[in-house]
Design a protein around this nucleic acid. Structure first.
Lengths: 178, 178
DNA sequence: GTCCAGAATATGACTTTTCATGGATCGGCG
DNA sequence: CGCCGATCCATGAAAAGTCATATTCTGGAC
């Protein structure tokens, strides 16, 4: 079966695509990342509803599953949502007893979020399922190839995250002196 | 500057992360893809509001920019949205004159969508900007490395798309015979 | 000590997306 | 032909996300 065989109707109508000419999106990195991300996750996400979890809730739980506490804003960046969105997600999750909020002792503005024992029980089987699903997706590629892909992605992430960092303290100080 | 330096507050509180132990999410392919996709696109997406475009509208226009017509459902899969969502996006875009709907002559159920001249004018400068942005993101990696990454992503996409394909006609026929 | 700019989170109005469903059409089969 | 399951798109109610803003707190300047 051809790997790029169009889905039903995908090329219907009067599509005129010269053999050699790829679509814009097929060569555009941002789109390939978005589509790969979407498809790779889709199969796993399809199993979340039966666990009564939304995608965002799953991401919160597996991010917190390592045990440390995170500020709301920091957690929001991890789960790829805006802070007000996460606040509302945390409200639901706290009501259900999966996470707990506590004011930071060091800084009164910060609210630290941690996973509860119930949250851990909720997420444990899903973490295992996620690992199995990843293995399935990567089956056929060697382990080295998979690690190489992850390394490239981590590099991309680091590079873009650096760009989107808020102005560093040292510089903002200088800026304030106009 | 350390590439993985935590953002302000990212490690505040009582985080206890042994040096060697990576977070679950740092080793999880689906998360790395989601985060890379999110961050790579973020900088470009930040420039869409000034062009009065939403992310979804941008994706519709650049997908259609190659000139062929697509069915609503097929287009929805391209732009990574559900079909009802796309129908509403297309309503807005058609009102603004960027796309046009037309019934398929071959199949009365299908509505084919194509970009208009106005839509083309709208998206042209953005296509150029997108290419420049991609070049910026990939600056520092060789062209060969970038192509390799894209090839891996296309492979992932092809593999997952095959899995999520609706049951092939031949098989569904067999299934119907219970 | 007081002031003030800036940071972190919460809240409410608003917009966007999704789910469930309905109407229309197609294709195959008796 | 006429039926029947399946496919495709549109619609309306419900859910989720976002923007702008309010509130509380911090840390440094004066």
């Amino acid at each position: 079966m051809a790997k790029f065989a169009p889905k039903r109707g995908e090329s219907s109508g009067t599509a005129v695509m010269p053999a050699g000419a790829a679509r814009f999106v097929d060569g555009y990195l941002a789109y390939l990342l978005a589509r790969a991300s979407h498809l790779v996750s889709a199969q796993f996400h399809a199993r979340l509803p039966e666990a009564r979890l939304s995608v965002a809730e799953w991401r919160v739980l597996c991010t917190l599953s390592d045990g440390d506490r995170l500020a709301v804003g920091a957690l929001a960046r991890f789960v790829l949502h805006k802070q007000p969105t996460l606040t509302k997600i945390l409200d639901r999750m706290a009501r259900r007893g999966w996470v707990k909020r506590a004011a930071s002792e060091a800084d009164g503005r910060i609210v630290l979020v941690r996973i509860t024992a119930a949250g851990r029980r909720k997420v444990a089987p899903l973490l295992a399922a996620a690992k199995r699903h990843e293995a399935d997706v990567l089956a056929g590629s060697g382990g080295a190839e998979a690690e190489a892909l992850k390394a490239v992605l981590r590099d991309l992430i680091a590079r873009c995250a650096a760009d989107s960092m808020p102005t560093p303290p040292a510089l903002s100080k200088r800026l304030r002196t106009r």
